[in-house]
Amino acid sequence: MNILTCLKRVPETGAKIVLTDDNQEIDTTNLGFTMSPHEECAIEEAVQIVEGQGGTATVLTLGSEEATEQVRTGIAMQADEGVLLETDGSEWGPRNIAGAIADFVRQRMERGDGFDLLLFGNESADTGNYQVGVRVANELDLPCITSIKDLEVTDDGVVARREIPRGSEVYELDLPAVVAVKEGLNEPRYASMRARMQARRQEVKRVTPERRHERGLEKLSLQSPEDDDGETDILGDSPDAVPAIMDVLETDLEVL
């Protein structure tokens, strides 16, 4: 089975998000980069399926040269092949990203080198648009399901489960198909140091994508939400604070 997993490079923000002076971007001067937890799970799933039944796991991202770092993380997690749809690093909207990915998949299909399963993170960690996977599925006329937390390959296709309160919904899809997944799907492996070193040497294929659409959703500016944090009542700095905690639980909050 040949599986394509699509991921996105995002800054690894910590206790606070700092914006650039013009409020257009996150100030990444002091930040590392990562991919969304959803996509780590997608790669892990692809690699596990391929380990179980053969085939290839390909990881792809659309972004600047720097995004090869995240593609190589995928390779270090034992994906076979990495692809960069190389841009100047500016923000592409979901329609254009989906269009570029669909173009790539179509070219591979025409070469007889297509994919049986396309995996996406359910939403990107940063822009949270919730639509790239769906748009790719529509462009390629493939069945699609999103918000998936459990995936099983069967003789006929895939069985996908979506979590709901107290249970899960079950969906069945024929292959080829598009599935957008969420963290919790599996426990992604840590790539070993050795695997990371090897991944650094592996070639990442580069493709220049075509940007087809005008921006339909145009970013004007970014802003941090107001935090309505009031004062913090420090109850103590040792277990001697327990009576004060009891007082809060009993009197202030009435939860005891």
Binding site: I26, A125, G216, K219, Q223, P225
Partner: peptide, 20 residues
């Protein structure tokens, strides 16, 4: 439409213009 939407699961807000 000029709108405000969530990014980063709500840790960041985006002011944007939506056409169509």
């Amino acid at each position: 439409y000029e709108l405000t939407r969530q990014r980063w699961g709500g840790t960041l807000l985006e002011n944007a213009r939506l056409t169509g």
